[in-house]
């Protein structure tokens, strides 16, 4: 994890670190860090603070992170007055299924593309690369068409099945399997284990870091997925969290801005990914940099 380690300073570098000029530079550096730290984090602080405010308080003092008088009214209305629990359940179901599917199917395909010699492999890999370049947003109408045609529109299957595999995940797994030495697999194969057996009980356990990266990327991706749910379902009972949130904002709440409620709902929708981020940060970083390897 090159990104997370600091390189030790050499004597030349250490000499440059001292002196008054270095101190000015350091102070400037911290000033920049703190200023941007505020820009990037304060919106979340505002969100947190205002979700515990009364509506007039949030409207009058939006900048202040502290409520005049702390109230849970917004959150109570999220659970009593909206379909939030339903959206949460749908999101959990979709996310778990999509994540399981992606991790399994992407690693199968990634392994085959990295290790198994079969006719058409090079062509298939080129196709995977090409598919990664297809912009997702131009697929809205196409996806709707195919789901309608297959009778999957407005169903859990429509929400889940199209997301069960993704080209980027296949690419990540292929890259990983190529970096693993072949010798272990060969030993297993010589011992008479079949291809799937070798993959399942020898190769996959070694792929833990890549599997965690892929799990996290898939979880985050499907938890936050919005456009797909927009074109695959219209039944409010099948809304996922992002879809439900968007619905709240577009005015299904009726009167008033109800910002504490909206901010609270958005906050609750953010928490799972935030927790994951705090725990598995370096895998997120690795995931982001997989993008850099593609180039």
């Amino acid at each position: 994890m090159a990104v997370l380690t600091d390189r030790p300073a050499t004597p030349v570098a250490r000499r440059a670190d001292r002196g008054p000029r270095a101190r000015v530079n350091r102070i400037l550096g911290y000033a920049v860090l703190i200023a941007f730290g505020l820009i990037f984090l304060y919106p979340f602080v505002i969100q947190l603070g205002n979700s515990f405010k009364t509506e007039p308080d949030a409207a009058a003092n939006p900048l202040s992170p502290l409520p005049d008088s702390l109230t849970l009214a917004g959150f109570e209305r999220i659970f009593a007055g909206t379909n939030f629990p339903l959206w949460l359940g749908n999101s959990l179901l979709v996310t778990v299924l999509v994540t399981l599917g992606r991790v399994f199917f992407d690693s199968l395909a990634g392994y085959a593309l990295a290790r198994l010699r079969f006719r058409g492999r090079a062509g298939l890999f080129a196709a995977v690369i090409a598919v990664m370049a297809v912009p997702g947003v131009v697929l809205l109408i196409p996806k709707f068409l195919v789901l309608k045609q297959l009778g999957l529109y407005d169903s859990y299957a429509g929400l889940v099945v199209p997301l069960l595999a993704d080209a980027a995940g296949v690419f990540i797994m292929k890259q990983f399997f190529e970096s693993v030495p072949v010798s272990v697999e060969e030993a297993a194969r010589i011992d008479g284990a079949g291809v799937f057996r070798t993959f399942w009980s020898v190769v996959l356990p070694m792929a833990r870091p890549a599997l965690i990266t892929l799990t996290i990327l898939s979880f985050q991706g499907s938890w936050n997925e919005f456009p797909h749910s927009l074109v695959s379902v219209q039944d409010p009972d099948l809304f996922t969290l992002p879809r439900g949130l968007a619905d709240l904002v577009s005015g299904s709440l009726g009167k008033g801005t109800q910002y504490p409620l909206k901010l609270g709902a958005a906050l609750l929708a953010t928490i799972p990914v935030a927790v994951l981020f705090v725990i598995f940060q370096r895998y997120f970083v690795r995931g982001a940099n997989e993008g850099a390897d593609k180039g």
Partner: peptide, 8 residues
Amino acid sequence: SSVAISVV
């Protein structure tokens, strides 16, 4: 989530 952030 892009939707949650848009709300903020």
